[in-house]
Design a binder for these strands. Structure first.
Length: 427
RNA sequence: GCGGAGAUCGCAUAGUCUGGUAUUGCGCCGGCCUUGAAAGCCGGUGGUGUAAGCCUCGGGAGUUCGAAUCUCUCUCUCCGCGCCA
């Protein structure tokens, strides 16, 4: 959510941003209109409250002096004031609610470096790392590999839970844990603190970190407790500091979160989503930084560098893309994706997303830091380190052998007792 | 799940019985003093608003001219009991 001051004093900044995104400016006008109306109605109400406060003081004074007659006179004057305030207050609250519901739908201000474009076609390539493996055979897709090795059981997942849920088995399940452990070690050695968050959140905290429409399309709800399964550990780890004022000396807060992630994936279908590329539950190791606004663009590059070194260590060929205006969501001001080369699919596909959300989440959550001039919102950043299901896809496609088995990346071998090859599961 | 005690400004604390508009300490900021720092002393230090003002004692509702204070309700924390990986 954008700061209301931006609408009042510098609305041209928001307008210019909407122009770049190619979206209607009408909601901006409406927010400003509702704000003015709210301020007016607030003033009227405050005037009435002031009357009441003055009367209350006069009554207290008169009682102290034992002047019961004066008390009665004042009482008769303010008889209807209570009802009046109540009505004015209700009106003001309604206007404020309308204003902020609309304000929440207005996206963050994009960074100047964000390229223009209508959709993912407009994303620009920032860098390339590694090379495509030169296979002496026709590389298989990941779903062929997980099936022939019996590493993933989607059918029984569907039986027990539903489609796109799965059992992960044998050596691939062991490598999944190795991947988690390796990426956590990689980040804790760079100053990040490991945090395991709750995997369910209440509605109020969740509204602080996500787009409202996500409640319909992304998150699972848990009835009757009115909780939501987290779609990523970014959500609890950012909401963790809701309503808090953080001492500047405590910044930056750098966390590596690990948790299962749950996504409804409403509307996602198609051949390219077969296998475990797009599933309802996966584990993710995530980087989170909460920092001073002056530092966030540096930290954004640090997050990307951490991903690059991690995926370089795994010896995966990938490209980094700078996400364009049309492909950007509501909360990020700038976003990089890391796309791994999938030889089976013959395409680069997203395995990491690295965003600077600037003060957009902090405003809604009221996460601030102390300054001599008052409290100001912090900046929040997040980046995938490893989303295990997609990481497994990239690794097994790039490291597959002609016999269908898979070479284990060297950095993971020490986490698997020196094992070098993923063997098929026997059932 | 049952019983009891609690939640007050960044932190800690007084006020709650008996309704009259939030106390004090720490931390932080500024000033004095100092070669500099510390200590000491003085002032400031919740939100919003240009301001007057309005709001703020876990959330919501109620009683009242007026609620941190009384009533109801919800949430959370602590203690004891029960159950339990």
């Amino acid at each position: 959510m954008l700061d209301m001051k931006l609408f009042r004093d510098n609305s041209e900044i928001i307008r210019r941003d909407h122009e770049r995104r190619g979206i209607s400016q009408e909601p901006i006008n409406e927010v400003i209109r509702l704000d003015n109306e709210w301020k007016n109605s607030l003033h009227t109400m405050e005037a009435s409250r002031r009357k009441r406060n003055i009367a209350a003081k006069e009554i207290a004074e008169a009682k102290k002096q034992g002047d019961q007659e004066k008390v009665n006179v004042i009482l008769s004057q303010v008889k209807d004031l209570g009802l009046e305030i109540e009505q004015l207050d209700a009106r003001a609250k309604e206007l404020l609610l309308q204003r902020d519901n609309l304000r929440m739908s207005i996206p963050n201000i994009l960074h100047d470096d964000v390229p223009s474009g209508d959709d993912e076609q407009g994303n620009t390539m920032k860098m390339l790392s590694g090379e495509k493996t030169d296979f002496s055979f026709l590389p298989k897709t990941h779903n062929e590999l997980i099936e022939s090795n019996q590493w993933v059981d989607l059918e029984r997942g569907a039986k027990v839970t539903g489609s796109r849920f799965f059992f992960l088995k044998g050596d691939l399940a062991r490598m999944e844990l190795a991947l988690q452990q390796f990426s956590i070690d990689h980040l804790t050695s760079r100053g990040f603190t490991l945090v395991q968050p709750p995997v369910m959140m209440n509605r109020e905290a969740y509204e602080g970190v996500t787009d409202l429409s996500d409640f319909e399309t992304v998150m699972y709800g848990v009835e009757p407790d009115k909780l939501y399964m987290i779609a990523t550990s970014e959500h609890p780890l950012t909401a963790m500091f809701k309503d808090e004022v953080i001492e500047p000396s405590k910044l930056p807060i750098m966390m590596v979160g690990v948790s299962p992630c749950f996504r409804r994936e409403v509307g996602a279908h198609g051949l390219s989503d077969r296998g475990i590329w797009r599933v309802h539950q996966f584990t993710k190791v995530e980087q989170i930084i909460i920092c001073h606004p002056d530092d966030s663009w540096n930290h954004h590059e640090v997050l990307l560098e951490n991903c690059r070194s991690l995926w370089d260590a795994l010896d995966i060929h990938y490209q980094i893309v700078n996400i364009c205006t049309g492909d950007m969501g509501t909360v990020a001001a700038k976003k990089y994706d890391l796309e791994a080369w999938l030889p089976g699919a013959n395409a680069y596909k997203e395995i990491v997303s690295c965003s600077n959300c600037t003060d957009y989440q902090a405003n809604r959550l009221k996460v601030r830091y102390r300054t001599p001039e008052g409290n100001a919102p912090v900046h929040t950043l997040n980046s995938t380190a490893v989303a295990t299901s997609r990481a497994l896809v990239a690794i097994i496609e790039q490291n597959q052998l002609e016999d269908g088995r898979v070479k284990i990346p060297e950095v993971l071998r020490s986490y698997m007792h020196g094992q070098e090859i993923l063997e098929p599961c026997q059932w």
